[in-house]
Design a protein around this nucleic acid. Structure first.
Length: 430
DNA sequence: TCTGGGGTCCTAGGACCC
DNA sequence: TCTGGGGTCCTAGGACCC
C-alpha cells in the first residue's frame, strides 16, 4: 500500500487594497488633511462614496446622500471633496505598477485593489515580505495599503478585512487553515465577497449570521437558493478555488455613459442635448479602448426615489450597419432612438447611452453600403487629440450647450495635481 | 381523437462588485 | 433643494423552430 501524505495547503492569493483610497489620494497632496475626517462625493456631489477613518468614526455611512449628513459635517468640520477621477486614476496606476512588479502574476481588480499570485513566491517569511511591500508602496506613493493572504480569492478578501483592522501598525493578515474557524466566525456573512444586501438579509432571516455558518451549509440548499454563484462563494470559503486569477483584462462588452440630472426636466431640447452629449462621451471611451460598437441603446427615466410621481422608464436600441467608433454615426443613431422613445409631460431625472456588441476596431469588415465613414479615423483622432490637449469638451459636434441644467455638479473639486500642468503642486521654501 | 417536448436565441430583470 | 456611475454574470420566460 502506498500512503499518501496530504499536501500542505499553501496560501495562493494576496489581495492588496488601498486604505480609504480616494481620501488617501486627497491627503497625499494636501498633508494638512492627515488626521482630519474627509469624505469624497459621487458625481453630482450626491452621495458619500469614500470616507477617511475619522469620517467613519463619526458615523458617516457609505453611500449616504450628502444632505443626510450635513449636520455632522458642519459640527465636526469634515472636509468634503468632489470625485477627482483624473487624480485617483493616475495615483492608482502608480500603486499598481509597484505591486504588479512584486509578484509573478497579478490581476488588477478595481481602481484600488489588486490580486497577486504568490503561490510560488520564493520567500522564507511571507508575512515579512508583505510588510516590506506595504512599506514600499507607502514610501513611493504616500498611499497606505492593507494586505490579506488566503488560499482562494474569497479568503484573501476575508483576510484583507482582518488586516484592515490592524492597518495602523501591521496591516497584514495571513489566513491559514489553523485560524480558519475563528476568522470566519468573526466575519459577518454580509462582509463576505459575493454576499450582497439581499442575500445577507435572506441568510440572516434563516439564522445564518457568520461566514462560518455560511461555509457549513449544504451544497444543495445553497445551489437552490443562491444559484451557482452562491455555491462558488461557499466553496471558496472552504478553500476550494473557483475564481482564477484573470491575468489578461478581457475587453469590455458594453460601455455606458449616464447621469442623473441636478433637477428633473420635461424639456425635450434639454433631455435630448444631454443624451447626445452622453453618446459623444461614450463613443470617446470606446475609441480610447480601440473598440467599435454595433448597437446603440438610449434610456430615459424618472426619479426612482420620488414617490410623488409615477415611475416611468423607457429604452430602445438601434443596430448600426457597420460597427463604428465614429461620433457622427453614433450620435445620429442616438438621436433617432431618442426621437422614437421621447414622450412629453414626463419629469425625466436620468438618461444614458449604452454602446453594445463592442469589438476590436481591427476586426471590422467595412460595409459596401456605408460610405459615410471615409476619413473617419483621421477626423476622430484629431478631435480626441484636441480634447486631450485643451480639456474635455473643447471640441465636439456642436450639440452640447454649456449652461444646460443637466451639467454635473462638482463644487468641491481638488486640483488635478498629477495630470494637468496648471494644477501641479507648488513647494514653498522658507 | 390527441394539445408534446426539446433546442436555441433573445431579452429583461435581478443579483453582485467597486 | 438634495439619493452615483459603470460594469459583470446568471436566470427565467417568451418566441420560434422542428
Amino acid at each position: 500500500m502506498f500512503s499518501f501524505k496530504s499536501e500542505p495547503i499553501m496560501p495562493t492569493f494576496a489581495l492588496v487594497d488601498c486604505n480609504n483610497f480616494y481620501a488617501s489620494c486627497e491627503r497625499v497632496f494636501e498633508p494638512r488633511l492627515v488626521g482630519r475626517p474627509i469624505v469624497v462625493l459621487s458625481n453630482n456631489d450626491g452621495c458619500v462614496v469614500a470616507r477617511s477613518k475619522e469620517a467613519k468614526l463619526l458615523g458617516i455611512a457609505m453611500g449616504v446622500p450628502l444632505f443626510h449628513v450635513r449636520e455632522i459635517i458642519k459640527k465636526h468640520g469634515v472636509v468634503v471633496r468632489s470625485s477627482n477621477y483624473a487624480l485617483y486614476g493616475d495615483m492608482s496606476e502608480r500603486v499598481m505598477n509597484i505591486l504588479s512588479a512584486a509578484a509573478p502574476g497579478h490581476e488588477i481588480y478595481s481602481i484600488d485593489e489588486i490580486f497577486l499570485d504568490i503561490e510560488r513566491l520564493p520567500v522564507p517569511d511571507l508575512g515579512e515580505w508583505c510588510r516590506q511591500l506595504r512599506q514600499r508602496v507607502q514610501q513611493w506613493t504616500g498611499i497606505p495599503v492593507s494586505i490579506g493572504v488566503g488560499q482562494t480569492k474569497t479568503l484573501s478578501k476575508v483576510a484583507n478585512k482582518l488586516a484592515k483592522a490592524t492597518s495602523d501598525d501591521d496591516g497584514v493578515f495571513i489566513f491559514t487553515p489553523e485560524v480558519a474557524e475563528n476568522c470566519l466566525h468573526e466575519t459577518e456573512v454580509g462582509d463576505v465577497w459575493g454576499i450582497g444586501r439581499r442575500w445577507s438579509k435572506m441568510l440572516n432571516s434563516r439564522d445564518i449570521i457568520t461566514a462560518l455558518d455560511l461555509r457549513n451549509l449544504q451544497d444543495g440548499w445553497v445551489r437552490q437558493r443562491m444559484g451557482i454563484i452562491g455555491l462558488r462563494t461557499v466553496h471558496e470559503l472552504r478553500g476550494i478555488s473557483c475564481h482564477d486569477l484573470e491575468t489578461v483584462t478581457p475587453d469590455k462588452q458594453t460601455t455606458c455613459c449616464s447621469r442623473t440630472f441636478a433637477r428633473a426636466s420635461s424639456d425635450r431640447d434639454q433631455v435630448q442635448s444631454a443624451v447626445l452629449s452622453y453618446a459623444e462621451r461614450a463613443v470617446e471611451k470606446i475609441r480610447y479602448a480601440g473598440q467599435v460598437c454595433r448597437v446603440v441603446q438610449v434610456f430615459i427615466r424618472t426619479d426612482r426615489y420620488d414617490t410623488d410621481i409615477a415611475p416611468y422608464s423607457i429604452s430602445a436600441l438601434e443596430a448600426l450597419m457597420t460597427p463604428t467608433a465614429d461620433s457622427r454615426a453614433v450620435v445620429a443613431a442616438a438621436l433617432r432612438v431618442f426621437d422614437r422613445i421621447w414622450k412629453g409631460g414626463v419629469p425625466y431625472r436620468k438618461a444614458g447611452v449604452l454602446l453594445l456588441e463592442l469589438s476590436s476596431s481591427q476586426d471590422v469588415m467595412p460595409s459596401l453600403f456605408d460610405d459615410r465613414i471615409n476619413g473617419s479615423d483621421q477626423l476622430m483622432k484629431a478631435i480626441d487629440k484636441m480634447n486631450s490637449r485643451f480639456g474635455r469638451g473643447s471640441i465636439g459636434l456642436g450639440l452640447s450647450p454649456k449652461s444646460a441644467k443637466w451639467r454635473m455638479r462638482q463644487e468641491h473639486l481638488s486640483p488635478r495635481y498629477t495630470t494637468r500642468w496648471a494644477d501641479i503642486p507648488h513647494a514653498q521654501i522658507e
